[in-house]
Simulated scan of single mutants.
Amino acid sequence: MDDWNVESMAEYCKLSVGYFSHLFKKRIGSSPMKYLTELRIEKAKELIATNSMSLSNIAQMTGFNDPLYFSRVFKKTTGIPPKEFQQSLLTINTPNWWDE
């Protein structure tokens, strides 16, 4: 939820931005911001699956101040928009009473 960026991460580690980015990519295998974005989207998927909160609230809880930007990043990362992801979970978890 915090407003992390490469500068704040480097400052937290008491390293220069360049050196922090270099070490991070060397050890983790991706850039700090790409890794953070992937973590945020994974958390958003978890929240969508386990909560009845609005997508706007989930976006804010996972560090995205703009719900539209959250939707674009979610779709770019997962291949589907968050609303479609949410609806697919509802379809999977809802029994088809009329088919019985």
Rank of each mutant, 00 (worst) to 15 (best):
T77C: 06
S88E: 15
S30V: 08
C13D: 14
P82S: 10
F20R: 07
R72E: 07
F74I: 03
S56N: 12
V17N: 12
V73G: 00
W98K: 12
E38T: 13
M53D: 09
Y12A: 15
Q86A: 14
I48V: 12
M61V: 04
S8M: 13
S30I: 09
F24M: 03
N57V: 04
E38M: 11
R40H: 13
W4R: 05
D3L: 06
I41S: 04
Y12M: 13
L15M: 15
T78G: 01
I48P: 00
M9P: 03
Y19V: 13
G79K: 02
E100H: 05
T94M: 08
P82W: 00
M33E: 15
P95E: 14
L39D: 15
S88W: 06
K34V: 14
W97G: 11
Y35S: 13
E46T: 14
Y19C: 11
A49Y: 08
P67Q: 02
V73C: 01
F20P: 01
D66H: 05
K25Y: 11
D3M: 07
E100W: 04
K25M: 09
H22Y: 15
N96C: 13
K26Q: 15
G79D: 03
I92S: 10
V6Q: 10
L23G: 02
N5E: 09
T37G: 06
N65R: 10
F74M: 04
A49W: 02
M1H: 04
I92N: 08
N93H: 12
L39G: 15
L90W: 10
